[in-house]
Write a protein that binds this DNA or RNA. Sequence first.
DNA 1: TGCCAAATTGAAAGCGCTTTGAATATGAAC
DNA 2: GTTCATATTCAAAGCGCTTTCAATTTGGCA
Lengths: 339, 339
Amino acid sequence: MNLKNLSDLLGLSQTTVSRALNDYPEVSEATRARVKAAAIKHHYRANTRAKSLATGRSMAIGHVIPISTRHEIVNPIFADFIAGAGEVYSRNQHDMLLSVVPDVEEERTYRELAAKASVDGVIVHGPRPNDPRIPLLKSLGIPFVVHGRASDGDTDYSWVDVNNRRSFERAANFLFDLGHRRLALINGLEFMDFAKRRKEGFLAAHAARGVAANPALMVTGEMTEDFGFRAAGAMLARPDAPTAFIVSSMIMAIGVRRAISDARLKLGRDISVIIHDDALSYLPNGADIPIFTATKSSVHEAGKLCAQMLLDIINAGDRTPRHTLLETELTVGESTGPA
Amino acid sequence: MNLKNLSDLLGLSQTTVSRALNDYPEVSEATRARVKAAAIKHHYRANTRAKSLATGRSMAIGHVIPISTRHEIVNPIFADFIAGAGEVYSRNQHDMLLSVVPDVEEERTYRELAAKASVDGVIVHGPRPNDPRIPLLKSLGIPFVVHGRASDGDTDYSWVDVNNRRSFERAANFLFDLGHRRLALINGLEFMDFAKRRKEGFLAAHAARGVAANPALMVTGEMTEDFGFRAAGAMLARPDAPTAFIVSSMIMAIGVRRAISDARLKLGRDISVIIHDDALSYLPNGADIPIFTATKSSVHEAGKLCAQMLLDIINAGDRTPRHTLLETELTVGESTGPA
DNA sequence: TGCCAAATTGAAAGCGCTTTGAATATGAAC
DNA sequence: GTTCATATTCAAAGCGCTTTCAATTTGGCA
């Protein structure tokens, strides 16, 4: 069933039928009702490709998911973020186009998306300091929103980010207030911007208290359970073992917990742990009382915000950058206690 | 830069340029080379919408991700599956169209995808027994592949699935062989087909050994850490506590491990655990020696297989169903021992 | 009754590509 | 030098929609 069939059926021109369905005013209410009824009855839906060819808008948003050729890991945050964004797209009749590409081909992918005109805008995932994608997208003229920020370089673009620096500074201060002095940081890979900012916050808190941060207690790595386990295990074996950990993700923290329990220590009593909690739907931080004391910020919500911001930008047609900086919630759980 | 511009530039007709780029034989090698060079030089890529309007193929595959209105959870398996499928699509110049929709609107979404002709085929996620989507997609005439199977009802469709029944039967037998008699099953929600099959396998092993399965030791629920923790905690507190657990996912098992350690028991010595390991990239089952004894099957691989099967079906044009049944690998880790 | 503005409808062009059918150029065979 | 098959190129139609511009109808008012 296409427009021609439908209009023939109704004895109307394609013009009128198209206008009736798209709520143009120059169509009588009587015909509009008749047309809409017929459209529903015959399950008519405008062919997306034809429609977007005619209008010049694809009604689709692109997400380019780079698969690291070195690390072969899929960001576990991804599912919840996508789900959040997807909800917004569905509600606004947009499609989501996902490209999973080896990171080395990322630039080519963006260029193709632009040239093939298959999306109206893109979300940029996992920004790195001085990220080359930002100038690229600007030069291509595609509207985009970055989930996170890329420090250094051009900062004149739209983003939604968590205040990672402040968040980790607060976490460190919380531990200092409990009397801890030997804090460990188990962070994500440092070429990711968020990890860099978290470390800065961690160090800033140390500086403010006049406590020297021990480089041996600051590690960065893949955000896996296994890495958390090894890193924490190694640190706990040191003579200058930390009394508290700040951990960049729930998944890593699960490994940290395993290391702590393997070392026959009790979480919250012998050792304190604060995590950053992305509020992943399948890893809730306890039901009533949080298992971990955490700086919490829902990545599902971030997905929604990014998507909404991008749609707003596209609709507004005005390209002045927008920013949303989310503060985390510091929720106290059972994993922290006095030193 | 569009086809017209490019052909004007070259002093050729659009026909010839199009043919040159699409490797049609009736174009001289000299012109083909000239055209291809110019295309690269001017970053020309055919507009997807125009192309698919002309060819009738959208070169896109749809994935409908239902968000349960009740459970609000995103399947953690999702990211790795999508990454696997996405790799295959990229390699074959296909796009992936993701629709995140409340489960109640799923039917409407499939109908729209069909009517709007925005995809050439779809992957069906999370089949349930007697799943209504299968007859629906058949009636709509869209090629599709199911990740998993829907027992009961029409079985005449293409799928890629793990042999869940056999897998859990083997796991139970492995524990029986170690001398365990009181086995617990911590399973996914039973309206999911895979969970149903796993339970069948669990029960089949019991029946074969003449051991009565204790209904109190078989639970189903959300696949979260928290559910695993609570379920295992409650069971361990019983007078007829299990000596071994079979757990349907790594994430649940992490909760089980927490419950075990809270009960001051040692995993692998006091209590055995076998998990089903989907080999999620961010939750590796230990680095050298597996933490958990597991029935393992990579969901990333399953994503690739589903995608490849669907593309094959679309290209073959032949609609006879194909099936791939994957056997799991039973790898012995440190979480099991004699009763 | 006649006139003009407003309301309503339609024909046709165009979005950027593929593909059919026709036209032209080339070259081998006579 | 023709002739005809083959190789190469092109003009134009068509994919299903939107939108411009033109045509028609309607109704208010003098």
